Computed example of a mutant assay.
Amino acid sequence: MGNSTQPTGNSTIIPTNSRDYYSCAGPDVKDYPPKGEWLSFNALWGINSPTIVKNNKDSAYADFIKQGIQDVSRASKVDARLILSIIMQESGGNAQVECTGYDYKRDCGIMQMRGAANFSSSEPEKSIREMIEDSVYGVSEPGDLSWIKGTFWQGNPFAAAHLYNAGSVEENLTVQVGENLNSKWYANDIASRLLGWNGSKQGCENSRKCPNHGFENRQCQG
């Protein structure tokens, strides 16, 4: 696609133009790329770390995020690449991202999980780790997905990502759930990030070429 290099099995090769590397997967759960096709964590970090540093204006925060991802991944058995991709999708790696929503239905933290910890400037490393932990393990706020534990992520990661975003899941991951427009392409965005897309506008433009995915009205980001 474009002048990108096709990665093969846990590749450390970064696509030449990561903006172009958008995957038109689906629509069924089984159609999404298996883990052997995902880039390695180091390759994905190389693609995304410039954005993380830029969004935080402090390279130390990027180091805390990287370490937090790896620590929580080891403890939870959730793939570090998946955690990183959802962080980039939800906040662009901005540790100080504001909560969204209202009243008790507020999505907070670097992964925008309902009821998750928020950033603390007095304890940046600790709070960043807590944000990641809360989003992977779940929290106990009213109306949240508190049943999410490590096992939640052990099935199909794209169904899990869709459920994380939309609150429900179907075999077809390109169907809009309720009023959540993002639910139509969330799983594809995560798949694309795992293959090397950096979340830029060009990837979004390429998604419009995907047949039968209903992405014609995709709102570009970046």
Rank of each mutant, 00 (worst) to 15 (best):
M1P: 04
N3H: 14
S4P: 00
G9L: 00
N10M: 01
S11P: 08
S11L: 07
T12K: 09
T12V: 03
T12Q: 08
S18V: 09
R19A: 15
R19Y: 12
Y21R: 13
Y21A: 04
G26Y: 11
P27M: 03
K30F: 05
D31E: 10
Y32S: 06
K35E: 11
G36K: 07
E37A: 08
W38S: 07
W38L: 08
W38V: 06
L39I: 02
S40P: 04
F41R: 12
N42I: 00
G46S: 12
G46K: 08
I47A: 07
S49F: 00
V53P: 01
K54E: 05
K54Q: 00
N55M: 00
N55A: 02
D58F: 05
A62Q: 02
D63T: 02
I69S: 03
V72W: 01
S73A: 15
S73L: 05
S76F: 04
S76P: 04
K77G: 03
V78P: 06
D79L: 07
D79I: 02
R81Q: 10
S85N: 13
I87A: 04
Q89F: 07
E90A: 00
S91R: 08
A95F: 05
C99Y: 06
Y102A: 13
D103A: 12
D107T: 06
C108A: 10
C108S: 12
G109E: 14
I110N: 03
A116I: 10
A116E: 10
A117K: 11
S120M: 06
S121K: 11
S122C: 02
E123I: 00
P124S: 14
S127L: 03
E130P: 00
M131F: 03
M131I: 05
V136Q: 09
V136K: 09
Y137L: 15
V139S: 10
E141D: 01
E141N: 14
L145M: 07
W147C: 02
I148Y: 10
K149P: 03
G150E: 15
T151C: 05
W153K: 12
Q154V: 01
N156L: 12
N156F: 12
P157F: 12
A159M: 13
A161E: 10
A161D: 10
N165L: 13
N165G: 12
N165E: 15
A166E: 08
A166T: 00
G167Q: 13
S168R: 04
E170P: 01
E171P: 06
E171W: 11
V175L: 15
Q176T: 07
S183E: 03
W185I: 05
D189Q: 07
A191G: 04
S192T: 08
R193N: 00
L194N: 08
G196A: 07
N198F: 10
G199T: 03
Q202M: 09
Q202T: 13
Q202S: 01
G203A: 04
C204W: 12
C204Y: 15
E205P: 09
S207Y: 05
S207Q: 11
C210H: 04
N212H: 11
G214T: 00
F215C: 01
N217G: 09
C220V: 06
C220L: 11
Q221P: 05
Q221N: 01
G222M: 02
G222R: 13
